[in-house]
Design a protein around this nucleic acid. Structure first.
Lengths: 160, 160
DNA sequence: ACCATTTGCATAGCCAGCAATGCAATGTTA
DNA sequence: TAACATTGCATTGCTGGCTATGCAAATGGT
């Protein structure tokens, strides 16, 4: 029968949403510092992870794997093309789609970049025991799944 | 004796940093949907939480409490002033500092806004048991502390 | 065959975060 | 007290996230 509403004020330092934002910013700062020497920035990282597994994907396939909105991905790909990480080529069969191909330069960065990400994760998770790490990652996965589902068209004032 | 380096590739869906970023984006999407009807956006939220506890703070005091860089806060405060949430007044004793004061409009939003944030947190954490919730929040706090400490000037190539 | 719909991507414009820099007000020190 | 250092904030310019919108290519229904 827990007291959901506290009498006085919202406790910022115990709010999951606030902590999630803060933690994500710190992860980003840390990764950015480590991949900047490689000429990479954090926004390109998720796209590269997918493309290193296999390129020639369409923009739509990328955004489905990454849960990123389409204009964000279009913008990111434009920067990646500008920076010589990918090239976009028209699909022969469908005139609408642009298939994304890694450049040799991008392929060459895989080992160093993933090593940098491993280092950041290791540094962050070092404060947890191995068991805690597993349940922490599992909890994030479950929360992500929970926040992705539902809210088909609700939750934002349905009647004027 | 765990294998820290996997033989083939980086597993995105088990990377703490990737999951933290994804989770934070989902929290933000959800909160944004709920506070948009109030005329608020997520960037102002942390500042408001601090100011609702007591205003008249300087910009520097705000950024220390929130771990936000100074130009980000200056920009956020400019939007908040534009939107009638705060006013900035020069400190009498020190000609450099601007003290931040909430408007009546901003004060009036506290209950509705914190209720919205509570709803988001409750929805996200509903997939965890009470015990899991506590350890999850604790883990985030510990990781935040770990990523904040150290790295005084290191980790990004110390010699040219 | 035609028109409407759907699909894939690009663009515009905003918010939020950052580093780098500028500058005025205050402190400090020789 | 004059020169220097520090502090507090603003500005510039970038990345990265979003919504809203536009548009061309493909698809479907009739």
């Amino acid at each position: 029968m827990q007291m959901v509403r506290r009498v006085m004020g919202f406790i910022r330092d115990q709010s999951a949403g606030y902590l999630a934002n803060h933690m994500a910013r710190l992860f980003a700062r840390e990764l950015q510092a480590r991949i900047k020497p490689l000429g990479l920035s954090i926004g390109t990282f998720p796209a590269l992870l997918v493309l290193w597994e296999g390129d020639g994907l369409t923009q739509r396939e990328l955004i489905e794997r990454l849960d990123i909105e389409q204009p964000t991905m279009a913008n990111t790909l434009a920067r990646m093309e500008r920076d010589g990480l990918v090239v976009r080529r028209k699909d022969a069969a469908d005139g609408r789609v642009q298939r994304i191909w890694l450049t040799a330069a991008a392929r060459a960065l895989e080992a160093a970049a993933t090593a940098a990400a491993d280092e950041v994760n290791d540094r962050a998770l070092a404060v947890l025991s191995p068991g805690e790490r597993a349940s922490f990652v599992d909890a994030m996965c479950r929360i992500i799944a929970a926040l992705q589902t539902g809210v088909p068209d609700d939750a934002a004032g349905r009647s004027p």
